[in-house]
Write a protein that binds this DNA or RNA. Structure first.
Lengths: 332, 332
DNA sequence: CTGCGCTTTTAAAGCGCTTTAAAGTGTGGT
DNA sequence: ACCACACTTTAAAGCGCTTTAAAAGCGCAG
């Protein structure tokens, strides 16, 4: 097969220098209309595609944003999609580095750095605050969904306490008094959500005392929590996340309880599964679009020198009311 | 911040040439023990990491495999993980290019080519056979999970007909006579699985006539199919995939049917969700590990010139028996 | 015409690494 | 002491692109 055409070939065919060709192909000002057309024609005729490695090497700025993500996490997938679009709008390219069992965050980040990514967007990073801070000293780093205080690290997160508060209010508004909360695995996020729950329960008149249960972030955890709730079920339960909520739903229904007639369930994340007609789960949306937008903006601001102080963007979640919540059963 | 160290800096510190340093760092034979140690020390001291773009550019072979995948597909996530590992073993690097709503297969492939990927592994490619063939003429291309006949394209797929056959045999072995099959969306895969179903039903003595229903690959499709089955339910149903099976399960249970006591359900894919204790779905595994292994092998063989004829690797799926299948209810 | 300030074009110097061919180093045989 | 030979090391030429500084072209006032 013929070797792939190089910029030089395009330039030769268009009878201009490679400098001109380069400028034209990247839409930079300079070359006149005649040259532009000639280069574009030549490139098309040859089926020219610039070599990314070479252009990366030559360019001072790479305009590359690296994203680490857990490929098996649907919320991450959603964020990635939005990030791609947001980066595109700002003229940046995205390279993704998946985390797997055999490929930790450390390694994923390294391979991003090897590609000269200027900014790193870490989706739900699990590295220590110290490691993050260290990274932040040399790169523009944005931690998404995780609170970190470090001068070099920007943070984009949702106001989880507010989110849970919305869920409580919604349920209280429907007339529920006994509203339980199933926690996630211990950590910053769980703490924040629990706070939101407690405060809302305290703030609202007429609701019973808070009731929190250990839970987790998988369906199994939800099932386990439901089990413990069964002998004295509340009229409504808020789960740490959608997966956990699914476990609750499943266990309750197997026990003959009707959701939402006997008990209401609220999830968290508005993951795609919650939207399925089958599930139709009332849940709290973290606004992935806004998150991605804010994260990309933060990275770009840093890189373009518009800001050196760390950003801490807190997004307001909103409640998505679907079919798993309803007024409580009429008082027995 | 200090600029990142270059190979030259490492070489200078170790008092050797960049050539030697390069050889040492890539573990190539040549440099003696003394030089090796000096270079390694220097690299460590400086925290040196090679620049991927530069090395890609200089190298003749890039040893890069590009993967296109749908990030929101859990089976793809699983394959990716295995592919990474397999490529690693063979000294290849993997770059992934996610497909999103706004970023079609065409574009994803282009960005892989821009990075000089030598081989492309396409997970469930949706492009036309013609486009695939064209790609295959210039690159090593492996289509995974899709049957294509083109001299330049290798194929790795599972024997789906056999897989469905296994499911039928399992159910028949348990004593089921009325075994329905819910299809996926029209396409090569659906056709193959349907064939497997029909043939197995014909082959096995004592089972009733085949009964196929239109379905799809989402939970909703499963729900819809279940609905249609309800007025005259078979004792067992095989679903096109796990998601569809989930829909079936959900709908059956809401109708008061007990799975597996009243009706058995089998899925396809052995996706992570099927393994959850809550779901515990009997399903057919496509052996992602073997698939990834075969795909990487195919690409590498092509690239290293060991083979020029197209490969068509067909993997035998196997049945994973879990909790959604049991003997049929005793005859009324 | 000449010269001046423009805009357009280009030659050439890298970007940081790999690789090849040639130079250097030491060993042992004679 | 000399040479052939094997093993190490290195200088230098790229890889394909971007970018800078300087050259070339051009219109127009003087």
């Amino acid at each position: 097969m013929p070797p792939r055409p190089r910029l030089e070939d395009v330039a030769a065919r268009a009878r201009v220098s490679t400098a001109t060709a380069s400028l034209v192909l990247r839409g930079k000002p300079g070359p006149g209309a005649a040259a532009r057309e000639a280069v574009l024609d030549a490139a098309r005729a040859l089926g020219y595609r610039p070599d990314a490695a070479a252009s990366l090497l030559a360019r001072r700025r790479t305009q590359l944003l690296g994203v680490t993500m857990d490929v098996s996490n649907p919320f991450h997938a959603e964020l990635l999609e939005e990030i791609q679009a947001a980066a595109d709008d700002r003229g940046y390219d995205v390279v993704v580095s998946p985390l797997t069992r055999t490929r930790g965050e450390r390694r994923a980040v390294e391979s991003l750095l090897d590609f000269r990514c200027e900014g790193l967007l870490l989706l739900g990073p699990s590295m220590t605050a110290g490691e993050l801070a260290e990274l932040g000293e040399r790169q523009a780093v944005v931690a998404i969904g995780r609170r970190v205080t470090s001068p070099g690290v920007d943070v984009v997160r949702a106001a989880d306490d507010v989110g849970v508060g919305l869920a409580v209010e919604h349920l209280a508004g429907l007339g529920h008094r006994e509203i339980a909360f199933v926690e996630g695995r211990p950590g910053a996020i769980t703490t924040l959500r629990r706070q939101g729950y407690r405060q809302a329960m305290k703030r609202l008149p007429g609701v019973a005392a808070p009731r929190t249960l250990a839970g987790g972030d998988t369906e199994e955890d939800g099932v386990a929590a439901a089990q413990r709730l069964l002998d004295h079920p509340p009229t409504a339960v808020i789960a740490f996340n959608d997966r956990c909520a699914l476990g609750l739903l499943d266990r309750f229904r197997r026990d003959g309880l009707d959701v939402p007639r006997d008990v209401s369930v609220v999830g968290y994340d508005d993951s795609p599964v919650a939207r399925l007609a089958t599930i139709d789960l009332t849940t709290v949306s973290q606004a992935p679009h806004a998150m991605a937008e804010a994260a990309v903006t933060a990275a770009v601001e840093r890189l373009e020198g518009d800001r050196t102080a760390p950003a801490d963007v807190v997004l307001e979640p909103h409640l998505v009311v679907r079919g798993t919540t309803a007024p409580p059963p009429s008082p027995a």
